[in-house]
Design a binder for these strands. Structure first.
Lengths: 151, 151
DNA sequence: GTTGAAAGTCGCTAAAT
DNA sequence: ATTTAGCGACTTTCAAC
C-alpha cells in the first residue's frame, strides 16, 4: 500500500469499470502495472469487490429508515444475522454499543411497506424495543458515488 | 424495467466488472443486448455508477460509529451538507425525522481519531447534542457485496 | 522486488439482418 | 434481439531496471 495504490483505489471507487489504461493515465503507470496492483489489492482483501450503485428511488423504493433494536435477552451476532438475512428490506445491519443491540438500515417502497418490514423484524428477533427514524434526505454518501446530492 | 433488467442489476451489483457476455449468460441475452440495457439503466439513472468496495479495516480504518446530531436552531440540508463534506471521516449523512436533525456515519482509524472527528463535527455544526454508538460488528451490507459476514 | 513493451486473445461496439 | 466484423482492451510473456 503506497501512494500509487491509493490513487488506484480512488480511481476504482470513482468508476469501477474504468479500463486499466485509464487508471494508469491518472496515476502514471502502464496498464499491466495497474492490473498487477489491482489483482494484488483484490487478493489481499483491500478491495472486497466491485458493485453497481443502484438508485433505490428509481426502482420505486423511496422510503428509508434507520432502526435501533433492543432484544429480549442476549443474542449472538451470528444468530442476529441469520434472522435478518431473510428480510430483504434490511439492507444493512450492525451490532452497536449502548442501549441498543443492533442498528438496522431499511429500504421500502413506502411507509406502509416499511411498517410491514418492521413488523417482520419484530417477529424474527423478539424485540424489546425499537427506535426508528425515517430518512428525509441523503446529504452525503462517500461509499456510493453519485448516490447523494452532488458528492 | 422488466425481469431481464432486474437480473442485469443483480449481476452488476454482484460484480460491476463482469463482462456483458457473462451477464448475458446469466439472464439469457446476447452481449450487445445486455450493453443496450445497461446503457439505458445508466441513462435513466437507475444505475448511478460503478464503484469498488474497499475494506476500511484493511486500510487501518477499523473504527466505525453512527452519530445522531441535534443542531442549535434550524439548519438547511444544503448548509448541513456544505459543512460536512469537509470532514473526510463522515462517510454518510442523512437528515431524519425525530429529535435529531441528522444521522452521520463516521469512519476512523481508532477511537482517538473518532473523538477528534466528532469534535470537528461539533465545531462545524454548532451542535446542541449528539448521541453516538460505536459499531461492534457488521452483520449485513447488501449495498456492498462481501463487506459483511458472508452475505 | 518492480516496471514497461509486444503479442495473442478476448471483449466491446456499431452495423446489418 | 441476434449475428457479424472491426477495433480496442485485456492479459500473458519477456526483457530491463
Amino acid at each position: 500500500m503506497d501512494g500509487l495504490d491509493e490513487g488506484i483505489l480512488r480511481a476504482l471507487v470513482a468508476d469501477a469499470r474504468a479500463t486499466f489504461a485509464e487508471i494508469g493515465a491518472e496515476v502514471g503507470l502502464s496498464a499491466p502495472a495497474v492490473k498487477r496492483r489491482v489483482d494484488r489489492l483484490v487478493a489481499t482483501g483491500a478491495v472486497r469487490g466491485f458493485t453497481a450503485v443502484v438508485d433505490p428511488a428509481a426502482l420505486g423504493w423511496g422510503t428509508e429508515a434507520y432502526v435501533e433494536v433492543r432484544c429480549e435477552g442476549p443474542v449472538s451476532p451470528r444468530e442476529l444475522r441469520r434472522r435478518l438475512v431473510g428480510i430483504p428490506e434490511v439492507v444493512e445491519a450492525v451490532t452497536v454499543t449502548g442501549r441498543a443491540d443492533a442498528l438496522l438500515h431499511l429500504l421500502a417502497r413506502d411507509v406502509q411497506h416499511l411498517e410491514r418490514a418492521l413488523e417482520r423484524v419484530r417477529d424474527e428477533l423478539d424485540v424489546a424495543a425499537t427506535e426508528s427514524v425515517i430518512v428525509l434526505s441523503r446529504l452525503l454518501d462517500r461509499a456510493r458515488p453519485g448516490h447523494a446530492g452532488g458528492d
